[in-house]
Design a protein around this nucleic acid. Structure first.
Length: 689
DNA sequence: CATCCGTCTAGAT
DNA sequence: TAGACGGATG
């Protein structure tokens, strides 16, 4: 997202750049930009659940290009979502689900091209995919680092510490984090657009003496950023005008002067906005990053540097107490959300199967620098062992299970998630071939009668290449099979597998009828804790699966209610199977969706909506291993049901003020909810045509 | 005049 | 997914 219109606004601070101009330097790369583009080339395969690594190859092309200019890349990956962004993420997930559905429908109607365009929209870049790239990079001695939270802050820190002199990204937020030299729009010819922080005063149109970086950052926040929506009618231009006009350094005072300074007498700046402004600013200044030299989490800027009150940092992340975990998260060995271990790589470790023909870069790794060196210059003594402040890598954990076994198990889980698309689509699409297309369009979602689980079983996979005319119940997900029955499953799927899965599914559906009513939503805390703690001993055998099933499945009531309300909700059930095997994040989300579907369509109660979003953010952003914190936050959200993201609890009067002042002529019957949402700092839900 | 809002399209091979 | 673009709005 970033700041709307910032890149054009920065024209005067930017210049053309060619990679040959920056030979010998180090660049931090916002790798998700590349991955997203790379995914585009194989989106259909990924949507079908097929294996492919084109996105890895695509990224490697960029890496090769950088290396060919003697530029050392450091690939930076996003870590956990900040609570403030959880809702955005949830919305993205939903939008992807919608695309998936739409793609399937179009495919059935034979509109292949249109279906493709939707398939491209429904694939997500998973950590599993990132890990694949990370492994390739390890083979090539290319540094990677997973940020504790946002890659932006991590890259800005690398830039600030002069470990990387440039940053490659597409996200204009980077400039707000204090990055000095940012390269946007880099192409495979090595051309990009360089934005330099020391020229920002030119973009703001003021004299250098009058300019301070804080003014620039505040201008951007005012104009609306990821952490705070703008005041109505304020964009970059007005925000700039105001920041140049005001002399007041304390924004709590300055912000109140906006209406008079900008001749916008109707504009109201309430205390909520001011509070959230301070938080947003603190988020940009003090987000947690990982310092690979000291091997510890730090804030991008210390609180002392700006004399910031910690209370403003509620959206800047939390310190991971376990430094061993923090290190492995940064190395990419953990799934950032579940904190489950997926790999055990350590710096300097020889790779088991370094493939031939893989050129290794000769650059010095950030992971091998002397811990005492703060700068990237001289005096570094590469060491092969762990640095003094790193914990030793254990080969056995306390249970006695070898780490390799744990990793294998986790990887199986990840794979099951990755191929979820297949299982998902088996259940979720109506066999509409027989229905007349006249009901068509998006409205038939509402019109189609809710299918029963029995009907659901006979659905085909619309993403599958060949029309499936085989037995109505088919599971092609080999990962799922492996998962359920690792020993028996043969690598090649066949008739035997189908039979086995059929019976499995029968048993699952049978279970559903007698499922215990224990949604985490309605569970007491004690129960929640029980659920959370139910954990590792649950091996991948089917007994473990069944056990978990009982705990995690929807209550039968809810399933029924959903199906009465809205046919499309049946899509949740299939994903449920793989999600049960996943960390609690997604299953939480599913339950939330179920609540969403329960609310009445024409006049959505935003209380329910917000409540569910809250719960999502609390669960989705927190690793399941932090039960204590989760429970704590659950309490928090329960007690403030209307509090979302960055917003403080808001009274209706406050909301009204904002509404009626600015937009009353525009308001239609449905918009008050929307406007209320934006008052909470969120934008309109994307609506699929 | 700046902002706002919806629509279009590049992104890869 | 987000940036660009063009028309509507205040």
């Amino acid at each position: 997202m970033g700041i709307t219109g910032l890149i054009p606004f920065l024209e005067k601070a930017s210049s053309k750049l060619q990679l040959k101009d920056i030979r010998g330097s180090t660049v931090a790369v916002d790798t998700y930009c590349w991955l997203h583009k790379g995914v585009f080339s194989c989106a259909e395969k990924l949507a079908r659940g097929e294996d492919c690594d084109q996105y890895v190859q695509y990224c490697l092309k960029y890496i090769q290009m950088l290396l060919s200019y003697d530029i050392k890349p450091i690939l930076v990956f996003d870590g956990q979502h900040l609570p403030a962004k959880a809702l955005t993420e949830k919305r993205r997930r939903e939008s992807r689900q919608q695309s998936k559905q739409r793609a399937a429908e179009l495919l059935r109607l034979g509109r292949v091209e249109e279906a493709r365009s939707h398939m491209r929209r429904c694939v997500d870049v998973t950590h599993e995919m990132a890990l694949r790239l990370i492994r390739e990079c390890r083979n090539r001695n290319v540094d990677c680092i997973v940020a504790p939270y946002e890659a932006d802050a991590q890259m800005a820190w690398l830039n600030k510490a002069n470990i990387a002199q440039y940053i490659i990204t597409e996200d204009s937020d980077l400039t707000l984090f204090g990055a000095q030299k940012v390269i946007f729009k880099l192409d495979l010819n090595g051309c990009g657009l360089l934005v330099e922080a020391d020229k920002l005063y030119l973009a703001m149109g003021c004299r250098q003496e009058k300019y301070q970086f804080d003014k620039f950052r505040r201008m951007c926040i005012l104009s609306g950023c990821d952490y705070l929506d703008s005041l109505p009618g304020i964009g970059l231009a007005k925000a700039c005008k105001f920041m140049l006009k005001t002399e007041q350094d304390d924004m709590r005072i300055a912000l109140k002067k906006i209406p008079s300074y900008l001749n916008m007498s109707k504009l109201e700046v309430d205390d909520d906005y001011i509070e959230n402004f301070m938080k947003a600013e603190a988020t940009f200044k003090h987000m947690f990053i990982y310092n690979p030299l000291q091997r510890r989490m730090e804030r991008l800027c210390t609180l002392e540097e700006y004399a910031t009150d910690v209370s403003y940092c509620s959206n800047a992340g939390t310190l991971l107490e376990d430094s061993h975990l923090a290190l492995h998260l940064a190395l990419g060995n953990l799934n950032p959300f579940s904190l489950k271990r997926l790999d055990s790589w350590e710096p300097g470790k020889a790779l088991p199967a370094a493939p031939k023909n893989t050129k290794r870069s000769k650059h010095k790794s950030i992971w091998l620098t002397n811990a005492s060196t703060g700068q990237n210059q001289g005096n570094e003594q590469p060491q092969n062992g762990p640095s003094p402040c790193a914990l030793f890598f254990k080969n056995l954990d306390f249970v006695g299970q070898t780490i390799d076994e744990e990793i294998q198990a986790n990887v199986r889980l990840e794979q099951a998630k990755q191929t979820e698309a297949q299982v998902f689509s088996m259940y979720s699409f109506k066999s509409k071939r027989r229905r007349s297309p006249s009901g068509g369009g998006s409205t038939d979602r509402e019109r189609t009668p809710p299918p029963s689980p029995v009907q659901t079983r006979s659905r085909h996979n619309p993403f599958a290449k060949e029309p499936l005319l085989r037995s109505p119940v088919v599971c092609e997900n080999s990962s799922l099979l492996r998962l359920l029955s690792p020993k028996k499953c043969s690598p090649v799927g066949g008739g035997a597998d189908e039979t086995r899965v059929n019976s499995l599914k029968r048993s699952i559906f049978a279970k559903e009828q007698q499922v215990e009513v224990r949604s985490r939503f309605f569970a007491t805390q004690a129960e929640q804790q029980q659920q959370e703690q139910q954990p590792k001993e649950e091996e991948l055998g089917s007994s473990g699966l069944n056990k978990k099933l009982r705990l995690e499945t929807y209550s039968t009531d809810m399933v029924l209610a959903e199906e009465d309300e809205k046919p499309s909700s049946n899509e949740m059930k299939p994903s449920l199977e793989s999600d049960q095997l996943e960390d609690s994040k997604d299953s939480a989300n599913l339950r939330i969706k179920s609540l969403d579907t329960l609310k009445s369509e024409p006049a959505p109660s935003d209380t329910i909506n917000l409540l569910s979003d809250d719960s999502c953010s609390s669960e989705a952003t927190l690793p399941s291993s932090q039960e204590a914190a989760t429970v704590q936050r659950n309490n928090f959200f329960v007690s403030n049901t209307r509090r979302v993201g960055l917003s403080k609890p808001t009274t209706t009067t406050t909301a009204k003020k904002g509404l009626s002042k600015s937009k009353n002529s525009k308001l239609t019957s449905s918009s008050p909810n929307q406007t209320k949402l934006s008052m909470f700092g969120f934008q309109k839900r994307p609506v699929l045509k």
